[in-house]
Design a protein around this nucleic acid. Structure first.
Lengths: 206, 206
DNA sequence: GCGGTTCCATACGGCGCCGTATTGACACGG
DNA sequence: CCGTGTCAATACGGCGCCGTATGGAACCGC
């Protein structure tokens, strides 16, 4: 007794493990312990399954994640929360990179683009909340977003280099990132409305 | 009259356009204007073609790229050169992300890991050349490498957000990154041998 | 108990790809 | 000429997947 949502969830698993091209009806049916006779009752074809999986993914990676992050009120805390959220689920990371590198079918790109844009806009809002102008906030957001995405890839390509969310070194590294990615002196009480360009870090002991 | 290198090059194209799973003998043969009768003279099977393509890729993305970057002597200039090199070829970017997200066959991961590690080590050396200790240099290198990889993905997922290497805005953005990613005050003549932690950017007009 | 609906199994045709076997065209040294 | 090596075309069997067609079991209201 499966629902179409069960199929969509299994399809997301398949995306994370074998990529978008690996979303095949018969293998997924085997994983679920049924035959494809079940599948073609719930869905018209393979493409409909992909759409369902993508909708599930988009809802989770925009509304749900951003809703949780919005519980933090301080812009600085929001950015830090985003870093930990992104690093929390290894499954979500794999799905993201798989979707991001997919080329076929074409509509996958639309979902990826919407999710990425909403994330980037959110980060930009965080920086705007620190008092930066739109243009400067966009630049900082692009760099911070790059670090997010790059971290996903490093955890994939160089396991062990990037600390996992449950390791003690993770906290240290987040602190390191925060100091660099969030320009101080913009906490809202001073320099609240001026644009700011990065001036780098002063050399001192670590 | 094809050589096995022609096939490996076409396989790399296929990886960039259709992913690792898209490296199929017969379609590539059609692209090259021959039949697979030619292919199975040059290679034992599909896997051998993948290995040849990966060897070609590894040579280009480590020895060749790093050799060009090493022409710069100043560590700061090297990092900046790396940014522009990474953003130079859209084809190389697509190949990299495709390989990075590949799961099957397993040996692909070995190539990706070696290439990533050599790049990361190179960046770490650059920071060490600025006078940072090994541990701190590693942290900076991880962040800078993340920005590299994230930039590739942003250019894919959000076309238009990240300026291309031939646009005028590209230079501005590189400067912005350099100021943030390379802590000043470590140019070699002062504070040359002390570890440094990031202290962020001071607020000033952009 | 009977028709209808829900959910799944089975069987089938078709397609794209892999890998092998066989043959053919062409160059070259003897 | 002839043999040999090089490179490619053709033909074939097999496999995994898609999508359809059909059947069947369980459950429902009546």
């Amino acid at each position: 007794m499966l629902t179409s949502r069960d199929w969509a969830e299994a399809a997301l698993d398949a995306i994370g493990q074998r990529g978008v091209e690996g979303v095949a009806v018969e293998p997924i049916a085997r994983d679920l312990g049924v035959t494809k006779g079940s599948f073609y009752w719930h869905f018209a074809n393979r493409e409909a399954l992909l759409v369902a999986a993508l909708q599930l993914w988009e809802a989770r990676e925009t509304d749900d994640v951003l809703e949780r992050v919005r519980q933090e009120t301080d812009p600085r805390a929001r950015i830090q929360r985003l870093i930990t959220e992104v690093n929390a689920s290894r499954r979500a990371s794999r799905i993201h990179t798989a979707l991001s590198s997919a080329t076929k079918p074409g509509f996958v790109r639309d979902y990826v683009e919407r999710v990425s844009k909403r994330r980037l806009d959110f980060i930009q809002d965080c920086y705007a909340g620190l008092g930066l102008g739109a243009e400067t906030a966009r630049r900082w957001a692009l760099m911070t977003f790059s670090v997010f995405l790059g971290a996903l890839q490093i955890r994939r390509d160089l396991p062990g280099e990037w600390p996992a969310a449950d390791e003690p070194a993770f906290g240290d590294y987040v602190k390191f990132l925060m100091v660099t990615l969030v320009p101080p002196g913009l906490d809202g009480d001073d320099a609240a409305t001026t644009d700011a360009a990065p001036a780098g870090a002063a050399a001192r002991d670590g």
